[in-house]
């Protein structure tokens, strides 16, 4: 399906221009790519475009503090985890939130200006939400890989410039 091909390319590089996407997927017109992408945006498959960054490499300015929090929740009779999850998701501090199988229920990533800010958020906002049984917070110390991008700079290996 063309839609999936376009999505695959955008996931690899959201900045690829539509003309190139058309050529790579063998779509005859740029307009058609525009229509596909517009459709994907409208239907909510594409929710946005961001950059994959190595936050720990940003020099100067305050680096963000990030934590991953495992949350145990009492599910509700009507709606299971959705109700609590939606409440948590609305906090801007929360950048990612998923429902997980296994020993915890919700796994979220949060971001703050300082350790204190994150700690306060957990103690005052998160842990006090009705239905939240427990939280377990781990602070991120270093990021090695995100969205398929490895953050460590590999040693450059020089390919031959020309050969048969």
């Amino acid at each position: 399906m063309m839609k999936n091909k376009v999505l695959k390319l955008l996931r690899e590089n959201a900045r690829m221009d539509f003309a190139e996407i058309a050529l790579r997927c063998g779509i005859s017109s740029v307009q058609e790519v525009e229509d596909i992408v517009a459709g994907l945006e409208r239907s909510g498959v594409i929710r946005g475009y961001t950059a994959v960054t190595d936050d720990f490499a940003v020099s100067g300015g305050a680096a963000m503090v990030k934590a991953i929090i495992e949350v145990k929740v009492t599910p509700r009779r009507d709606g299971g985890f959705d109700h609590v999850a939606q409440r948590i998701a609305k906090f801007p501090e929360v950048t990612d939130l998923i429902l997980l199988s296994g020993s915890c229920d919700l796994l979220l990533t949060i971001q703050g200006e300082s350790l204190q800010e994150v700690a306060n958020f957990v103690a005052e906002k998160l842990a006090t939400i009705d239905g939240v049984i427990s939280t377990s917070t781990g602070f991120m110390l270093r990021k090695y890989k995100e969205s398929g991008r490895i953050m460590l700079n590999d040693e450059n290996y020089e390919r031959l410039k020309i050969c048969f």
Partner: peptide, 22 residues
């Protein structure tokens, strides 16, 4: 010609015969 290419530091090479993947 190969020597010319190899001496040029900043060229874009479409002259290789191998994958660009590791």
């Amino acid at each position: 010609f190969f020597d010319l290419v190899n001496a040029m530091d900043d060229c874009i090479s479409l002259g290789v015969g191998e994958p660009d993947f590791t």
